[in-house]
Nucleic acid binder design. Structure first.
Length: 221
DNA sequence: ATTCTTACA
DNA sequence: TGTAAGGA
């Protein structure tokens, strides 16, 4: 499907259904990776073409160029965030496929058999042939960030398990509340509200902890 | 002559 | 975003 073909500006623009000027415009906005330069000529490949198609699709959906620019960064770090925005509303979590090597690289030295088993048990990880699938890019990113901060992966995983319990309880609460007072279809529509409530409350709760700790310091000194 | 960039509208 | 002008 995707050959190792390369295109010059005009050809790429034509295939993407835009003008050369627009192509340059996108590049200036950081929406497109720099092309391979061969002296005077700029060579683009299928990655660029795919990106342009993505941009076009997002524009169709009413996204602004600057909004897309923000997402472009995420696109460069993650894999296929493209359809995450419109094509996959059932869940906002995108699975990530990665090789065992890539996984090991993300959690330097922490990918022990024990941790692997724990992650599999939690359902964070699954396997698909030789590849490993993480259920959520966000969770993957966060956990590797925490490990990078010096927190042992084993503890990150057990914390994840506890968060899972609370999340289930919250989901039960909202589901019950919504379904008890309206059609079940509301579940999908009101989902963002549930998310907002939890996010806001967590924010406030963290604020309280910060405040309590500060007062504690002053009292002790 | 061709391919791309710069600058201006 | 189009286009004219100019560098390589």
């Amino acid at each position: 499907m995707a050959d190792k073909q390369e295109y010059r500006m005009a050809e790429l623009a034509e295939r993407a259904g835009i003008t050369v000027r627009t192509l340059r415009f996108y590049r200036e906005r950081g929406l497109l990776a720099p092309p391979r330069r061969e002296g005077r000529i700029a060579w683009y490949d299928d990655h660029h073409l795919a990106r342009l198609r993505t941009i076009a699709a997002l524009l169709e959906r009413g996204h602004t160029l600057s909004g897309i620019a923000e997402l472009a960064e995420a696109l460069d770090h993650g894999r296929d965030v493209a359809d995450l925005l419109g094509v996959a509303p059932p869940t906002e979590e995108e699975p990530v496929r990665l090789t065992p090597e890539e996984l090991a690289a993300r959690f330097e030295g922490e990918v022990t058999p024990e941790n692997l088993a724990a992650a599999l048990d939690l359902g964070y990880l699954g396997t698909d042939g030789d590849e490993i699938v993480h259920i959520s890019r966000r969770l993957l990113d966060v956990s590797s960030a925490l490990v990078r901060e010096g927190i042992p992966l084993a503890e990150v995983l057990s914390a994840g398990a506890r968060v899972r319990q609370h999340a289930d309880a919250l989901a039960d609460l909202f589901t019950d509340l919504i379904v008890r007072h309206g059609p079940e279809e509301n579940l999908h529509r009101l989902r963002p509200l549930a998310r907002s409530v939890v996010e806001a409350e967590l924010s406030l709760a963290l604020d309280r902890r910060v405040r309590e700790r500060k007062e504690g310091e002053q009292g002790e000194d």
